[in-house]
Design a protein around this nucleic acid. Structure first.
Lengths: 219, 219
DNA sequence: GAATGTGAAATCTTTCACAGCC
DNA sequence: GGCTGTGAAAGATTTCACATTC
């Protein structure tokens, strides 16, 4: 019974599962924390410590069974089942999301799509008939939707998030470039390539040299 | 001259800059760390501490000038210039990236696109003529490309990353679902919605109850 | 011999709390 | 009176190092 598992650890588990899947596809069936560390650019100690929060999965003197550890991680993460999702916002980005096969392949199934634009509702994209957002609550309930994907313009992001939360949705995958606000029992993951780039440029441009070092801000 | 700034701090700066831009668009010109904390779901102390790594941008008893702080952050992050990028992999995902206006709008310009498939090279997508990957090195040099976007299948991800690194690229935005390996002087940001979902499900499914608690792994 | 699992130490990050300034 | 900037304290995370097991 794990008492308090750090969130950073949870965030790493899918990466562990992914390299294990790759090792398995290569026919490798035992792996050491040393080798996993090399593949993940992490220390062997970190990997062992992370895994130790959940149980004892390895064999001393030998390492971890690739298939077994992968299955345990998938179990821990809740990946041995299908998760039902709905998309809100079927513009350019939303349409690309609907056409992307990667979610489905990994057990994340998009079963409904919503848009506020009446010109779009009723049309079919990626095999789904686009519904009006007015139908959100009803559909979330009847289809057992657990995760909402937000792909609307930033200006409408918060109202869509609020609507999803009002439907009882506990997980949101947010593609809109704004700061989401949710109650503490709702989980959000942001996908924002621009934000990712904007921290990378700090390193690419070299170290920051303050223009007026040690002086007080001049308004 | 900031001595050693934690990476977590750098990762938050773009979020600060983004809410400041939003506040500015609302005509608000002074903000306290308290209010920023509310907007970002962070503590006021964290915001003040983060900013203190780079200088003293506020006024006691008053707060921060929204426009001024935003400009300083953009300066620090290197956002007051255009960054030149190249895309590798012009499949469904790559095409969507090329058509997405958000990069351009934020000063990230894609000036070249590459694909290994001869059926695609020579065709035009999003205003760019797709080039053969054989031309990568030459084009990176002549166009001054600084950031590479990887949107190829996972199986070819590492070879594309290696090719970009060989061209002298120091920043990679990776959309392919695999574990990137790069030299320590190259910066990578991963965009992987499935990985994001896979850690969210841990929380959505409730706390992990080990199936055979305290027992040793049975192979 | 080899590699795990894990307390303890080291390091990193956040929060506190208050002097100093507007 | 209000709010910043910041050392110091508290808390979280990573790494060490070694007893233990295969």
């Amino acid at each position: 019974m794990p008492n308090e598992i750090p969130e950073v650890v949870i965030l790493r588990l899918p990466l562990y599962a992914r390299v294990l899947a790759q090792l398995e596809s290569q026919g490798i069936d035992v792996v050491s924390s040393q080798m996993l560390g090399d593949l993940l650019q992490a220390t062997p100690a970190q990997i062992r410590k992370d895994l130790s929060y959940f149980g004892r999965f390895g064999k001393q003197g030998r390492g971890y069974n690739v298939h077994y550890l992968q299955q345990e991680l998938r179990q821990i993460l809740g990946l041995n089942r299908t998760w039902i999702m709905a998309l809100v916002g079927v513009g350019q980005l939303g349409s690309a999301i609907l056409s992307y096969g990667g979610f489905q392949r990994q057990g994340f199934q998009i079963v409904a799509a919503f848009d506020a634009d009446p010109a779009r509702t009723g049309t079919t994209v990626g095999g789904l008939v686009i519904q009006s957002v007015a139908e959100l609550q009803e559909t979330v309930r009847t289809r057992g939707i657990e995760i909402g994907i937000v792909a609307v313009p930033a200006a409408h992001g918060q109202e869509v998030v609020d609507a999803l939360v009002a439907c009882g949705i506990k997980g949101i995958l947010n593609y809109a470039p704004f700061q989401v606000r949710v109650p503490r029992n709702v989980w959000v993951r942001d996908i924002d390539p621009v934000v990712a780039l904007q921290s990378m440029t700090y390193h690419l441009k070299g170290v920051y040299a303050p223009p007026r070092a040690m002086s007080v801000a001049v308004e």
